[in-house]
């Protein structure tokens, strides 16, 4: 089997479980985003694949070959760190040369490869600068250049853009994809930013508390979340939760709520904020505050009824697991007026 696969990989440190029984497969050229809140195990996963930390149990395979116990330096891994980890005492050229020199690449080839990657990333004029003399975006490009130079078999990116401003991040996304994805090596991309995960990745793996919650395509995770955590973590503005009998909960996304003539829940608009070109309305209802994304130009009365289509309901049991065909939602007891 080609590509990267993790089989039942766990990592414990002392009595702390950082990662528990992770199964993942990344095809060659595929970009898989590891998404989750901080401390969920995504960076741990990356460090295990890189060989920077040892697995407590489980296997890591690359193109069918077991690399679980191979030292980091022999895995041909390219990694871009969140902090870029450029060597501060060396200039850009020396930073790039260090790895090749330690691998014994002869001088002429070294110079040729460095020149090519400098050209590709438009770093040539900065070659004699130290990292401290570079802007954040330039440092990121140097880190990327270093990763590309390695002719990697796996590419690992640890929040590579979190130190850049939002606009630059957006511009860099296609650039990163062009440079790193679609080639031979599988790409693992760690982020806590769902927007970035959706923009960068072919598939997303959502992690929480050291466990894999769900892995799937970007749309799939959004429309068909298997756990309450995934439904809650993906999608902004965040999903609405309505309690139902038996400890179950119903999730309805803000864009699926709509005003309707009769039936549904009595609601009173509390405030509105602009969400791009659409108004997001906060509604006071007998079932708590709900968020409703109105179509552009929609107008609201002071008092209204809101509802949703049954096919847009997402049901979860008391343990947060998805249940299919549990609807439709019925109002419990008599609706109070608001």
């Amino acid at each position: 089997m080609s590509g990267l696969s993790l089989e039942q990989v766990s990592r414990r440190s002392g009595d702390r479980v950082l990662l528990e029984g992770l199964d993942l497969a990344v095809a060659p050229g595929e970009c898989l985003a590891l998404l989750g809140p901080s401390g969920c195990g995504k960076t741990t996963t990356l460090r295990l694949v890189a060989g920077l930390d040892p697995c407590s149990s489980g296997r890591i395979l690359l193109n069918g070959e077991d690399i679980t116990h191979r030292p980091a330096g022999e895995r041909q891994v390219a990694m871009v760190f969140q902090s870029y980890a450029l060597f501060p005492h060396l200039d850009v050229g020396e930073n790039l040369a260090l790895g090749l020199r330690s691998r014994g690449v002869p001088r002429p080839e070294r110079d040729r490869r460095i020149a090519a990657v400098l050209e590709l990333l438009e770093l040539t004029p900065l070659v004699r600068r130290r990292p401290a003399q570079l802007s954040g975006g330039q440092r990121q490009r140097v880190a990327l250049a270093r990763a590309l130079l390695r002719q990697p078999r796996i590419v690992l990116l640890d929040e590579p853009m979190s130190n850049l401003d939002a606009r630059l991040r957006e511009d860099l996304r296609p650039e990163l994809r062009r440079l790193l994805c679609g080639g031979e090596p599988p790409v693992l991309y760690v982020t806590h930013d769902q927007q970035e995960a959706m923009g960068m990745a072919d598939r997303i793996a959502v992690l929480q508390a050291g466990r894999l919650e769900q892995v799937g395509g970007v749309r799939e995770l959004y429309t068909d979340p298997r756990t309450r955590f995934v439904a809650d973590f993906l999608g902004r503005p965040a999903i609405n939760w309505l309690p139902a009998e038996g400890g179950r909960v119903l999730g309805v996304r803000p864009e699926h709520l709509r005003p309707q003539a009769e039936g549904g829940i009595a609601a009173r608009p509390l405030r509105r904020e602009w969400w791009g070109h659409q108004p997001l309305v906060w509604l006071e209802t007998p079932h708590g505050t709900l968020r409703m994304l109105l179509p552009a130009g929609g107008e609201l009365l002071d008092y209204l009824m809101v509802g949703w289509r049954a096919e847009n309901e997402l049901w979860f049991d008391a343990d947060g697991r998805r249940i299919d065909g549990a609807g439709p939602w019925r109002q419990q007891g008599r609706a109070r007026a608001v």
């Binding site: 460090r47 980091a72 330096g73 022999e74 990694m79 969140q82 902090s83 060597f87 260090l98 790895g99």
Partner: peptide, 15 residues
């Protein structure tokens, strides 16, 4: 010293 610097060095295959 940020530990990432050494991680980066290890990934470069430096003993």
């Amino acid at each position: 010293l940020p530990p990432e610097l050494e991680d980066a060095a290890r990934l470069e295959g430096m003993g």
